[in-house]
Design a protein around this nucleic acid. Structure first.
Lengths: 200, 200
DNA sequence: GATCGTCTTGGACGTATGTCCAATTTAACA
DNA sequence: TGTTAAATTGGACATACGTCCAAGACGATC
């Protein structure tokens, strides 16, 4: 039952990464410190620099891991949906799902901004975003039959993050229905279900 | 010729605000410190707390001033354009004008994120964004004849900031033409000029 | 020229930071 | 049971931070 040294090591590493992720979302990238991470993880401060050479290293690894997991989840969900019409609906639903209440959402924005000033983070994040965008473009091409699917994917994925940012600042926006313009953007027929612009 | 004490005071205040704005864009909201601002402004560190009660106060005032000026500039430009078709083009051009090279653009993103954790900043920024959005909605209604101009304005203004963020991380995006989906979003006829999807 | 109010200076104070490390614990192994 | 390697502890170190303040400078006013 008692874990080996290596097992305990792995466990603490995960604990530290997890604590770092949550702190980035809660207090911001720049406000995460050695001691706060340790306290949040329920560990002693000295451990941080045993497992990670630097605090920035910890932040980069934690955030990239989080983004990587989320991208994989989204891609899996996208690929699973085969019916074209339902696919468009799902893509539209993604735009609605991003809310400030979701920690992951805030973390994404925080990482994007941090990437501006950290080259390795920027490069690796760019790869992940490109991956997501490519999959989104495939989807748009297949389900909505767009001929400029690439460009639309660029616009759509940028829109997702921008929407989060604006909703963070102006929570009343969350209530506002935006499916109308989104449908137009994706090139879907408005015919399906008349013009029901407001649903919850 | 020699300025009075009060005049010198105003001048220093402006210098400090200006230095703060530039530092926010260059190094990030959280990385701006008393001493850095003073050095950038060519002044002694003690002055910062003579003119501003706190560093955060300085940052809030500096960034809100910058945003306020830019919003006014945009609104003036929007109002000047009377021809509906040209108006749509101008709105589309705005999306292209936002690039990571522009310091103001980076500052905007930085302020949006900072507003998440500072109530006064958040509230005042929300007012400014709403003002901009309302004007944009008026424009869309008048020039593009949209019936869901409000929703489109929400999407469009969020898109502007999201685009900046993504281009910051992936500079290759700046080259990618996106006028196609943008035209669709704004509800403009693609007829004008066939499908010229790439122009510089 | 003396007085006054404003702006400026230079440095102090306590606190928090990132990083490091010698000593200690712990579990696996010989 | 004694040895070994990994993980952990607790505290040290220099540095940077926000804030404050007594003393000086300087033009306006009397």
């Amino acid at each position: 039952m008692t874990p080996t040294s290596a097992e305990r090591g792995k466990e603490t590493r995960v604990r530290l990464l997890d604590a770092a992720s949550r702190l980035i979302a809660e207090e911001g990238w720049g406000a995460v410190t050695t001691r706060k991470v340790a306290e949040r993880a329920g560990l002693r401060p000295g451990l941080v620099h045993y497992h990670f050479s630097t605090v920035t290293d910890l932040l980069v690894e934690a955030s990239l891991g989080e983004v990587r997991r989320e991208v994989e989840r989204s891609l899996a969900a996208l690929r699973q949906e085969i019916d074209p019409a339902a696919g468009v609906e799902q893509v539209l639903a993604m735009a609605e799902a991003y809310t400030p209440d979701d920690q992951l959402t805030v973390l994404f924005t925080e990482v994007l901004l941090a990437a501006t000033r950290h080259e390795r983070l920027r490069a690796e994040l760019a790869v992940l975003i490109r991956e997501f965008r490519a999959a989104l473009a495939d989807w748009l091409r297949a389900s909505a039959g767009l001929d400029d699917a690439e460009a639309t994917a660029v616009v759509f994925s940028a829109l997702l993050d921008g929407l989060v940012l604006h909703r963070l600042v102006d929570p009343s926006l969350t209530a506002q229905p935006i499916t109308g313009p989104l449908r137009r953007l994706v090139g879907a027929k408005e015919a399906t279900g008349a013009t029901d612009a407001g649903r919850s």
